[in-house]
Every structure is written in C-alpha cells, then in structure tokens.
Design a protein around this nucleic acid. Structure first.
Lengths: 405, 405
DNA sequence: ACTTAATTTCTCGACTGTCGAGAAAATAAT
DNA sequence: ATTATTTTCTCGACAGTCGAGAAATTAAGT
C-alpha cells in the first residue's frame, strides 16, 4: 500500500494475473482468461500479445472445439521459457528434479546423503555437485535455469536461503545462497518442508471451492515434528509460514530433546520420544539418532494389543501435540489441521491424546474442537508445494524483468 | 496481487500515499511530499489539486520561510473534512473522545460503567447513549462522523465489530456493529486494546528509524493479560494482530482461570492469580472479580522485604509469562517485547521469573533472549493507536469514495 | 531601484495503461 | 452461398505518471 504506483506496475500485476490463471486452470482461451481475471477482452489481447512476443506463452495447437463460431485458440506457458530445479532434502537423501516452465517433470534422481556428522560444511557442496549432475544430464544451458527451490525439515530463513536449524545438522547453519551463488545466476529459495505441504493443501482447497477456506495448518509427524500454516489474507492472496512448532516448549524441564533443550513438543511426540517412553527409558536419555519405522510399528502393534506402556507412549505424544495445537490456535484463529507424515499410520493411537490435549484450553472450550483430517502422500504434497510456489515466483521474476533476462 | 489493477486504482493508492505522508510528518509542501512519496512533482500537483477541490486538504496559512526563492506553501488535512469518535472501554468505565480529521481532540468525557453482571445486552445501548451525548454536545451533523473506533480488552472479531470474549462480560458477545448500525452510517471498528498499544509503539518506532524494526510485541499486565503484535510485512506495510495470549494454556490442569478453564497464563500472571498465590489460597478457588491495586502494592512491598510466598507469587507469574512468550516466539520470529499496563510497577519482581521462563525454550537458547523493555503511559498509547489506525482508515475510505460521500 | 540568482510550483506534451464498442475472422447451420 | 454465432482483434476515448521547461516569487547583489 505504501509504495508508489505507476501505470507500468499495473501492467506487471495484470500480466502475472494472466500467468497465474494459466497455471491454475491449464491452457485457456482469450475469453476464458478474460472471465477468470476480470480484465477486458482488449486488455487480454494486449497482454497475451506481449507475453507471446516475449516467448513466455504460446498458442496451443489443439484448439478446443467450442461448437459454432470462430474456434477458440488456447494459450499455455512455453515449456522452454525457463526451467526449475527442485531439491528435496530429507533424512535419507536428497532428491533432485528438473521441471520445465509448464510444470512437467523432465528428469529426477536421488542421492544418498552421507551421514557424516560434521558434514554440514561439505553438504552444501554435495548439493552443488548434484545440481551440476542434473544440469549436465539435461544438456540445457545453465542460464535457462531460472530458479532452484530447496526444502528441508527444520528452521529456515527463507529470504536468504539459509538453513538455521535442521534435524540432521543441528544448529550448524547451511547458507545455500552463499554456496550456490557463484555457479548459478538462478534465484535460490529455501523453504520448510511442511510449509510446502500446507501451501499445496491450501492450493488444492481453494481450487475446489474458491475463497471457501480461510486458513489451514499442516502437521507433519515423524522422527521430528513439522508445522506449516497457510492463511488467506485478502482476496485470493495466500500467506504461508512455518513456525518452529516441534521445538515449542511443551512442559518446563521436561524430557530431553534432540535439540539439546528440555521439554520440547518433539521430545514427547517425535518417533524417538515415543520409543523412549514405550521402553520406560528415563526421559533425559540422549535421543536415538534414527528410529527405523519397523521399530515403531512393533510398539504400535503392542499398544493395539493392550500393552499399557506402549499405549501410554502414544497417548503422551498425542497430548503434547494437542497442547501445542491448542497454544497455536490461541495465537491464531481457529483453523482445520491436516495431519501428514509417516506418523499418520499411528493416528488411531494418537488421536485420543490429541483431543485430550486440545480440550484443555480456553480456546477449544469456546470455539469447539478444530477439524482434524489425515492426509497421506506427504512426498507428493511437498513436490506440489514446490511447484506452486516456485512457478509463481518465476512468473513474477519474468514479468518484472520485462520478459527474458 | 491477485485482483485486477487499473489506472484509477493507481491514482487511489497514490492519493492515500500523499495523505499518509501528511499524517506522518505534519504539514508538508509540494516538494516535501514529492520527496517522501517518491512521486514526481507533476503528479503531486495533480493529486493535491484534486484533494483540495474535494475539500480533503487545504493550503496552510503560515508558510515556512525557506530562505531564497519562491516560498513553500504547505498542505495539511482539513479539520472539518470528517470526524472520528474514539471509545475506549475499560473495566472502570467508558471514555468517549471526539477527534477531528487533523487528529486534534475536540471533546472528551468518561462514564462509569455499571457493573451489572447480566448487562451485556444493555451495555451496547449504553455506549449508544454515550455516543449520542458526545454528538449533541458537539453540535455537529451526524453525517460528519466518519468513523467510530472502539477498543476493549479481550477477544475481538475486528471485521464486524463483535466483542467475542471480554474480562467483564465473559463470552456474552456484544455486537456493536448491529447495535449502532441503525443510528450511524459511520463505519464502526473494534480492536483489542493491546493491539492498539502495539500499533502505536510500532508507529513510534519506525518514525524514529524507518524500516529499522521488523516486528514488535506489546504485553499488557494487569488484572488480565493482553498481547498485541505488529509485524512489518513488505515495504512500510504493517500487519497487526491480537492473539488470545492471556488464555493460552500455561500448564495442563493448572489453576482455575476467570474464563472457567484451567491453567491459562492469566490464571498465573493476572492480578487475581498473584493475590491468590501470595495468600496460599488453593488455585482452584474462584478468582476475585476485582483486585484493588493497593492490595497488590502491599503484596509487592512484602515481597521486596523478603516475604517468601509473596516473592514466589510474582516469580510464578513471571515464569508463566516467560513460558508463554517463549511459545509465542517459537511460532513467530524473534521480536522485542514491550511491557505495559499497571503491572509494570512490579517489573522488578516479575523479571527474574520472565527470564527463567524464557530461557527454558529451544528458541531462546538458539537466538538469545529477546529484548525486553518497559513502557509506561499505556492509556496514551491506546489513544495514539486509535488515532493511527482510525485516521488511515478514514483516508482510505474518503479516497475510495472519490472525496465526499 | 533594478537586476540576477535561487527555489518552488505549475503546465504541457509524451508515454503507458485499461476499457467499450464495433469490426474482422472463422466456423456451423440453413 | 448465405446466415447466424462465437471469438478475436482493433481503434479511439479516457485516466494516470513523468520529465522538461515555463512561470512565480523571494533574497541577494549592485
């Protein structure tokens, strides 16, 4: 609101509006774009002509037969306008994906991550090598890569692509911007993984019913706990954030967390915490680095057969999550919570605790229990979130640069 | 971003830009406006001519002698362009203020609030009567009132001016929009009191050093606990929110709170809670309705003289606040915390607890203790916040309506 | 007293943008 | 072939910003 406006800016904004419509609804004709954006037909002519001359969009070959009258000619993004690399960093490894401007996957491979403990410094270089490999396999010009979109669990400074805290490297920071800037002129962004899940769910949601949803939280359960929030601020404008939920204080002087603090939510609801409690290990024991899922499956099986301590471990985990969510909801507005991640397989065991933990707060007593839903297929959502976010960033950059830099 | 733009909108935005500059810096000349807004001189001529014709601004009489050359002629908002009523609802009473478009106070009086317990329904009417009284004293035309800006402690739905939960009326909702809409065509807004404090502090802050501050929290200590957050989102764009901090869960199954729940922060840090703990009353005792400040002063005096239980009560209160703040900061970014309200007189007793409570979290261990500052003069800040917010709302409305409805 | 320099404000033409109306294009139905 | 229908394109009107230079107005210099 408080920066000066000019007529050129109007054109820029309306151009990204057109591109966004194309992303959301696929190939569109002149009149459809006009309908979706609310811009007049004449303006659409002007903008599409510009975008076409700038080699950003192209006329689709197959024109949708629309009955009588002059046939519609559809526009769509040009695949070769620019390329995007998606890098998903997980505890097992790193997945590299090359995607074109139309959002279709071109190449993908994964690399094992060395579990070198003091490898934080080296890790950024390893990612650099992975990127080089992807580029050389593609035979594309380096300048065609417009954006490198990274994601990881943990705490992230998204402005400057610095990983501040991660489950694997702790508080050894990794500055991807600094590490990659020399070799790439592509923009580099880094987001929290669960934030992207939330973004994807939000996009799916209001693809179904536009402006139906106000906000939504995604809670990812696994070895660590992630949370992403998407909030509809203003007309069709989404705002996303990734609070440091897993390491929010659950109880003062509580169980020892992987991060070195005591009493974090993760120290009760992370996989290692459930394991610790199920085996009645003192809660100041140093947490296990990795817990195979099979191990937790066994505990879950025992809990389902009535083993008291195993059931209690899941219930305690649920209460920690429920209390945390209640605190979150006290600070925001009421919103539905989508639960994802490998931990969803134990949702039957966690749910009673979550509801108990939620019910202990003023907020829930006043406004009722928030809607809880379980969403599977987390990896797919992460990738979808990358695409949603990255492609719209590229759109903005291209338009701002006056098509083609 | 996702609504269509047009040239007219550009003019609107730039017009409010000019008005905002006038608000922030007082009367300004043509060239000064150009400097502050970044708009060209020609544009300033066009916009100021429009605003002057629309009777929104006027040329100031006293022209600042600026040495050689053609003397500067200053613009300022016309006092009679519109009027604003500020209604501050507190536990003691209701204060009504009439303010003109230039932001100067014209009339003010306070009314005792009847402590009628089932008076929620009647209260809105009482406010209506107060407004009538203010209007008739002013001899202004009713249509000249452009905005009624209310504030209260508690939980508020700001879009539609509904008080959802307040310390006095509990969860009996009060719909001011519905109650006043019939008699007033002025816009009606309702904000949380501490939110306005945060807004005022934020405005003061970046009046000092522009874009120096990223965000800020205001914590109001008193019979109840209030919190407001102001966040700088984008260039010179502020976002404010008032989370339900006082009733965020502190400890599960903890002390009984005034709201009926157990374990809220307020049930440990509110004045009644400190009283309860100092006298070793069981913490499930129904909280006192009102605690005279003198009573708490006595406890503070004893605590300062070394009385164990009194000191402990303040320390516990501090820990509750500290834990709550640590949770808040886990979910947002690190930000300075300004402490206001009557409770600041006990800050010496509270501080150790607050710091202990903060230190128990991962966030604080990683990023260090947030800056804590004490700010007196809360009532002044509340009024200042009203003005900041209300006048810019009026500016927006006037411009949108094409000067004069 | 007159001129000159300095500074501020105003005005004009160029440019960019959106929009509505209607022309042009292209196909199906008659 | 012609007509109806639908889509796309084009043109002129209008709104806005900007840079450059003209006009206004005062202080300083002679």
């Amino acid at each position: 609101m408080l920066t000066r406006s000019s007529t050129e800016l109007v054109r820029q904004r309306n151009s990204v509006l057109v591109l966004a419509a194309l992303r959301r609804h696929g190939a569109l004709s002149h009149t459809e774009i006009s309908d979706f954006t609310g811009l007049s037909s004449a303006t659409i002519s002007a903008i599409t002509a510009d975008l076409e001359k700038g080699e950003v969009i192209e006329k689709s070959e197959q024109q949708a037969a629309s009955g009588r009258g002059r046939p519609r000619v559809q526009f769509r993004p040009r695949r070769d306008c620019g390329y995007l690399i998606v890098v998903i960093i997980s505890s097992d490894g790193v997945q590299y994906s090359l995607v074109d401007y139309a959002g279709t996957l071109i190449d993908r491979f994964s690399e094992e991550r060395s579990h070198d403990p003091h490898g934080a410094a080296r890790f950024a270089d390893a990612v650099g090598e992975g990127l080089e490999r992807l580029l050389s396999r593609s035979r594309l010009s380096r300048t065609k890569i417009k954006l490198i979109s990274l994601s990881s669990k943990g705490l992230v400074s998204s402005d400057d692509a610095v990983l501040l805290w991660s489950p694997i490297f702790g508080s050894e920071r990794i500055d991807f911007e600094a590490a990659l800037r020399a070799s790439w002129q592509a923009k580099i962004i880094l987001d929290n993984e669960t934030l992207l899940v939330a973004a994807a769910l939000g996009a799916r949601e209001d693809a179904g019913n536009p402006d139906g949803l106000r906000s939504l939280a995604a809670l990812s359960l696994g070895h660590s706990i992630g949370l992403g929030i998407v909030r509809n601020a203003g007309p069709a404008e989404r705002e996303i954030s990734a609070p440091n939920f897993g390491h929010m204080l659950h109880v003062a002087n509580g169980g020892l967390c992987r991060c070195g603090s005591r009493g974090c939510i993760e120290a009760y609801a992370g996989f290692y915490a459930i394991l610790r409690m199920a085996f009645e290990v003192p809660d100041d024991t140093i947490p296990a680095k990795f817990v195979p899922v099979g191990e937790l499956d066994k505990i879950a099986a025992r809990a389902r057969q009535g083993h008291r301590m195993s059931a209690f471990a899941f219930r305690q985990a649920g209460v920690a999550l429920g209390n945390g969510l209640s605190r979150l909801l006290s600070l925001t507005e009421r919103m539905p919570v989508a639960i994802t991640g490998p931990g969803t397989r134990y949702y039957d065991l966690l749910r009673p605790g979550i509801e108990e933990g939620l019910a202990q707060s003023h907020m829930v007593r006043m406004q009722g229990m928030p809607e809880l839903r379980v969403v599977f297929d987390e990896p797919l959502l992460v990738f979808e979130g990358h695409l949603n976010r990255a492609l719209s960033v590229i759109d903005g950059d291209i338009v701002q640069a006056g098509f083609h830099i």
